[in-house]
Structures are given as structure tokens and as C-alpha cells.
């Protein structure tokens, strides 16, 4: 464990908590893409299949449980409890266009052709594009509540910090994992224009408005 990965995990946890609190407190999931939340639930499910078979550390096991439970709780809140506030008119990204290519790619490019390894690789590829429906929704509505932009900033920062973690691990352990690194770069690049808007607008107290 290193500081980059620890802060990255905490940023990831913060993002998930911000989102759950926003939906629970405002009793509304306006401005949030349910499709992205479904993709995140798929990402954690396919990545943490080894949760019950491989013990890494208490921290690792607890965090995996928290991520899985929180992602399903968010999907439940959006599609069941507060479904009347779900913005299905704008949340129209075709996630099958993300699921199928990622699955095919995980069959073609992986470290080992086993179920666990292909599922892990699929979750890595899927996570890199899972935020697209959310960014698509923000671009369609042209704005985002400040709490939603804080959520996106924390979520985007987590994988950016993981990139630093992988640089550190390369220097400290002299090995690297290209599938995770390339996917992590793609994932972080997708947030770049949002990061720019967040830093230039939201941090100055303005609302996140996308140029129409």
C-alpha cells in the first residue's frame, strides 16, 4: 500500500458516499445517470468475484464489500425507491455499446483465459468507460448540481491517483500491469474536460454549466 493508492481508495469511497447521501437526503436522483450506476455495479461484481476465495487483507475485504453494497444500494434507490425522480428522458446512453465491446476485448486481450481473469479484465475495461452515460447526461442537461460535480471530481480523482500509485509501484517493485494502466489512462482522460470545468467554475462557487 502507498499513499497514492490509499488516498485514491478514500477518494473513491468519498465519491460513493457523496452520491448515496445526495440521493438519500434530497430523496431525488435528478442529474444522476442510473446507467452509469448499473455499470459500476457490474464492474464491482465482476472484479470482486474472488472476494470469498482470496483473502488479501481486512482493509481489502471490507472495502470490496462496501463498494458492492453501496453500488447496488444506489441502483436500488434510483430504480426502485426514488424512481419517480429518475431522469430517464436524458439518461439514454446505450450501455450495451459499452458492455459488449468491453466483454469482447476482455476475451481477446487478457493475462490468462480463465473465468476469474477474463471477468477481472472485463471489469477493468468497463470501469474505464462506465462514467460515459453520466458525462453524457450532464452534457445533455447542460449543467450539474454542485454535489454531483463534487461526486464526479472525487470519482475522477480516484483513478488519477491510481495512475500515480502505478508509477510508484513500477519504481518500487519494478513491474507494471499494462491492462490496468492503459484503462486507467483512458478513464482519467475522459474526466479531463470535467476537471477543467470543475476547477475553473465549481471551485469559484459557480454552478457547473456546460457551454451549450
Amino acid at each position: 500500500m502507498n499513499i497514492f493508492r490509499l488516498v485514491g481508495d478514500l477518494s473513491h469511497l468519498l465519491a460513493i458516499i457523496i452520491l448515496l447521501l445526495k440521493i438519500w437526503k434530497t430523496r431525488s436522483c435528478a442529474g444522476i445517470s442510473g446507467k452509469s450506476q448499473i455499470l459500476f455495479a457490474v464492474v464491482y461484481t465482476t472484479r470482486y468475484l474472488d472476494l470469498l476465495t482470496t483473502y488479501v487483507s481486512a482493509y481489502n475485504t471490507v472495502m470490496k464489500f462496501v463498494f458492492i453494497v453501496a453500488s447496488y444500494a444506489t441502483v436500488y434507490l434510483m430504480y426502485v425507491k426514488f424512481r419517480a425522480t429518475y431522469d430517464h428522458n436524458h439518461d439514454t446512453f446505450r450501455i450495451e455499446f459499452l458492455l459488449v465491446p468491453c466483454f469482447i476485448l476482455s476475451l481477446l486481450i487478457n493475462h490468462e483465459f480463465t473465468v476469474l481473469e477474463v471477468m477481472w479484465t472485463f471489469s477493468i475495461y468497463l470501469e474505464s468507460v462506465a462514467i460515459l452515460p453520466q458525462l453524457f447526461l450532464v452534457s445533455k442537461t447542460g449543467e450539474a448540481e454542485s454535489i454531483t460535480s463534487h461526486y464526479l471530481f472525487a470519482l475522477g480523482s480516484y483513478r488519477a491517483l491510481y495512475l500515480l500509485n502505478w508509477v510508484y509501484r513500477y519504481m518500487a517493485e519494478d513491474h507494471y500491469e499494462l491492462i490496468a494502466i492503459v484503462s486507467g489512462v483512458v478513464q482519467t482522460v475522459l474526466y479531463c474536460d470535467f476537471f477543467y470545468l470543475y476547477i475553473t467554475k465549481v471551485l469559484k462557487g459557480k454552478k457547473l454549466q456546460l457551454p451549450a
Binding site: R5, T54, V56, N60, F67, H175, E177, A180
Partner: peptide
Amino acid sequence: DLEKYYKDEL
């Protein structure tokens, strides 16, 4: 082993 492919990560 776990560290090989970052399997010790979340």
C-alpha cells in the same frame, strides 16, 4: 502471486 497483476488492489 497477487502483486503481479495488481490483484492486491481494489
